[in-house]
Amino acid sequence: MNIVIYILLAVGAVFNGLGALALIRFPDVYTRIHGATKCTTFGSIFSITAVVVHGFLRGGGEGGTLAVHALFALVFLLITNPTGSHALARGAYRGGIKPAQAVVDQLEKDRR
């Protein structure tokens, strides 16, 4: 069963790595937030699922507690991450940062 945990961790690490790469490759704050979202969704879903599987395999009160706590951490991460990303993007836009390489900016047109 350990192989399942290793696979989950590897997939999570790959997505987290690609998210970090996105911070270097993408041109502006909005596209970089897309990359960061990828970290917090698939990166943490797979890493935390690995912890949950480990907790259940270990069994007993301690393992069960570990698994349930990890699941709660995932739930709260998935609720709070979009809230934070949206606040960052909205704040950046109101602060006057225009999206780079944009083919269309409907918000700019509507505000005029």
């Binding site: 909005y30 596209t31 937030i33 897309h34 990359g35 979202t37 990828k38 969704t41 998935l78 609720i79 991450n81 979009p82 809230t83 990303s85 949206h86 993007a89 909205r90 836009y93 999206p99 409907q106 918000l107 509507d110």
Partner: peptide, 28 residues
């Protein structure tokens, strides 16, 4: 809806118009 959109990579809710309910989404 705004949370679900922001949670999927590639789309990001930048603003929601209070009265009309129109969504402004940064789309990759």
């Amino acid at each position: 809806l705004a949370n679900a959109i922001t949670l999927t990579p590639g789309t990001l809710t930048v603003d929601v118009h209070e009265l009309s309910g129109a969504f402004y989404v940064h789309w990759i």
